[in-house]
Amino acid sequence: MLRNLDLTALRSFAAVADSGGVTRAAGFLNLTQSAVSMQIKRLEESLGVQLLNRAGRGVALTAAGEQMLGYARRLLQTNDEAVARLTGDAFEGEVTIGVPSDIVYPAIPKVLKRFHAEYPRIRVTLISSYTRRLKALFARGDCDLILTTENSIGPEGETLIELPLIWIGAPGGQAWRQRPLPLAFEYSSIFRSGVQEALDRAGIDWIMAVESDSTRSIEASVSADLAVDVLVEGAEPKYLERIQHGGALPDLARTQINLYTPAAAGSGVTALAADLIRQTYRALKA
């Protein structure tokens, strides 16, 4: 006899897998922890397999859980698309997304293109700013969801990917060879102090050659080979390039790209946008 999967339980399972824990998943789904745990337990019992390894402090997917997650995401996506298109409940409206300017590429254009193709009646407003301001806008409700670059994560956040910081300069540029090293940073750059400390530890003299509150001004200065900058790996624009310094510059820290969504955003326009962002970053990791 064929058995039917419970979509509500699948949604809880996917939320736990994406967020890394029952507590955080419960917040995203606006459910209690016990409700989420019970739904996953019923799903495991209906399948006769263990999906989560609960040993230790957190939860991890078993081999069966990893296999089930792919099916769960496809089933939920089909369900949500059918509901949205037939009822219009989640097929129109607007959503405001905040993204730091230095990680708009490469993910966000892909998100916006797919979002428009699948939900053309939803208006998307993109706010590009620095992490501290975006978190303030999110706290006030001026952004429905935000991406951040951070070394840690706060409430209502989930880490999508962790990437290294890299030195960037003009194509074929020589500014990175100069001493003191000329740096170009925005005033509000979250990476600025860490980079300076790394140079100090390496015994490399530096000067702040270019400062601005504009990302484009910094990029123009770096592309003119007046200074060097630091970006998240993969986010460098085509007119700049990663500096192959051969150890002449210190290795830099890694940073988390975090997604913040309201605890009650279990469905609707914000949830649709958040799911597309998650899918895009999962593809980047693949």
Rank of each mutant, 00 (worst) to 15 (best):
V16Q: 07
L43W: 10
T23C: 03
N30A: 15
V16H: 08
T32H: 14
F13R: 04
V36I: 14
T8E: 11
R42F: 05
S46D: 15
G48Q: 09
Q67F: 15
V36K: 00
G58F: 07
R11C: 10
A9C: 08
A64F: 12
D18C: 01
Q50M: 10
A72F: 13
D80R: 11
V83C: 14
V49D: 12
L61G: 02
L47W: 06
I40V: 07
F13Y: 06
Y71I: 11
N53W: 07
A35V: 02
G65H: 10
L69N: 00
T62N: 00
L31G: 01
R73V: 09
R24G: 07
A64K: 00
D6L: 05
G21T: 05
Q33P: 05
L7R: 15
S12T: 04
Q77W: 13
E66D: 11
R74Q: 15
N79F: 09
A26G: 09
G70A: 10
A35G: 15
T78C: 10
T62F: 11
G21R: 07
V22D: 02
Q50G: 11
G21D: 05
R54A: 07
E66K: 03
A17P: 13
A17F: 04
V83G: 11
N53C: 06
V83M: 09
G58I: 06
A25H: 02
R57L: 15
L5R: 14
V16Y: 09
L52A: 07
A60P: 07
Q77Y: 14
S19E: 12
A72W: 11
N30K: 01
A55H: 15
R73I: 04
V36W: 12
L29V: 14
D6P: 01
L51F: 00
Q77A: 15
Q33I: 13
Q33M: 12
N53V: 12
N53G: 02
V49Y: 08
S37R: 15
V16K: 04
M68Y: 10
K41T: 12
G20W: 13
R24M: 01
S46T: 02
L51H: 08
V22A: 04
L31K: 13
E81T: 08
E66H: 01
T78P: 01
R11Y: 03
L10A: 06
A84K: 15
S19C: 10
A64V: 11
L31P: 01
T8C: 03
L31E: 02
T8W: 13
L43C: 05
E66G: 15
L75Q: 02
L29F: 07
L52S: 07
A64T: 01
M68K: 08
R3N: 11
Q39P: 06
T78I: 13
Q33W: 02
Q67V: 06
R42W: 04
R42I: 14
E81Q: 12
F13M: 01
G21E: 05
N30M: 08
L7D: 09
S12R: 03
R57C: 07
F28M: 03
E66T: 10
L61C: 01
F28G: 00
S19W: 03
S12V: 04
L47A: 06
L69K: 06
A64N: 05
